[in-house]
């Protein structure tokens, strides 16, 4: 059940990122001027970036939009879809939302209709929802990651293109007993580990089969933990790269980016534009906590989904 071979293709994509992400890592991205992007509140600004991406990607052929973000009740996307003539499936697996979207889209994909998979995140909204009021200065831990602001969407169908999704592995909810909500890397590394292990086992592959294994948002320290876990299971770790830890190379106060938008942003606007890799394993990792659960001192469970992407030159 958990792994399956599929056939669908990724077509045009569009990305918007916040002002702090404008640091020469990404190419071909529109940037916001500030966190508000000309809107009156941060919530409206997330709705706005979703609208802008949907405007670029939705055509008459589009029948279904699959997506989600970190907002309570997924308002960032649902409000942006109001009065558009498309069906909508709202999904949530925190920072693994984009990969979950691709897995669901691969089930519905056909040759006549387009599916848009979209995800977004907003630093200040996450700050407000998961931590303290925005203007409240709390001590920042060196290992905590920084929620990336942005929105990325991609069109999926069964017509041939350069980027083919060949198979996927659905994740299971894993909890290794970490309750520190500022240490997302340590929370999510076990999820990624279990999913990579299951994926390789189910398809009888070694990790060398992939030119690149791109994890979502473990950050610098989470990546080290994942590599240690894989080494213990005798899996090679040379080709594993974390999208989040690539985002803020010059900022030593951040252990990397996080948020569902991190992985697609780095994938479409950096990795695929470099044209170096033929086979890529995308591993989205999400921490399934809320502030209430953290305040009640419960440990944080995590989910991770994986999708194989083949690039034809």
């Amino acid at each position: 059940m958990d792994s399956k071979t599929v056939e669908c293709y990724l077509h045009e994509n569009y990305a918007i990122a916040g002002s702090l992400e404008n640091n020469n890592v990404l190419k071909d991205v529109s940037y916001l001027k500030d966190f508000y992007g000309g809107m009156k509140s941060i919530e409206k600004s997330e709705i706005r970036i979703n609208e802008l991406v949907l405007n670029k990607l939705i055509t008459d052929q589009t029948k279904l939009v699959i997506g989600g973000n970190l907002d309570n009740q997924l308002t960032g996307l649902s409000y942006a879809l109001t009065n558009r003539n498309v069906n909508y499936l709202g999904i949530y697996s925190a920072c693994a939302t984009f990969i979950e979207g691709l897995i669901i889209a691969s089930k519905f994909a056909n040759k006549k209709e387009d599916i848009v998979v979209i995800t977004s995140s907003h630093n200040l909204i996450s700050e407000r929802q998961f931590k303290y009021p925005i203007e409240y200065g709390s001590p920042i831990k060196a290992y905590s990651t920084f929620t990336t602001t942005g929105c990325v969407g991609v069109v999926v169908n069964r017509n041939l293109s350069k980027y083919k999704i060949t198979d996927y592995t659905m994740g299971k909810v894993v909890d290794y007993g970490i309750d520190d909500a500022s240490n997302m890397g340590a929370v999510m590394a076990p999820g990624a580990f279990e999913t990579i292990k299951t994926h390789l086992k189910n398809f009888k592959r070694t990790i060398d089969y992939y030119d690149l294994v791109l994890t979502g948002d473990l950050g610098k320290y989470g990546l080290l933990i994942l590599k240690d876990l894989l080494k213990e299971a005798n899996i090679d770790t040379d080709n594993i790269v974390d999208a989040g830890s690539l985002l803020y190379p010059d900022d030593y106060n951040k252990a990397g980016g996080s948020g569902p938008v991190c992985l697609p942003l780095i994938l479409f606007k950096k990795v695929l534009l470099e044209r170096k890799y033929k086979r890529i394993l995308l591993v989205g990792t999400g921490a399934l906590h809320s502030k209430v659960m953290v305040d009640q001192k419960l440990t944080i469970p995590t989910i991770s989904h994986a999708v194989s992407l083949e690039v034809k030159s």
Partner: peptide, 30 residues
């Protein structure tokens, strides 16, 4: 400005009455 100062100096600015004022105003802004 003050949240950046608190993140840097930590307890030095949280413990005095400045910390209380900061907590109230940041909540109000939120």
């Amino acid at each position: 400005f003050f949240d950046d100062l608190v993140s840097f100096f930590e307890a030095g600015l949280i413990i005095p009455t400045t910390g209380f004022s900061h907590a109230v105003i940041s909540g109000a802004l939120d």
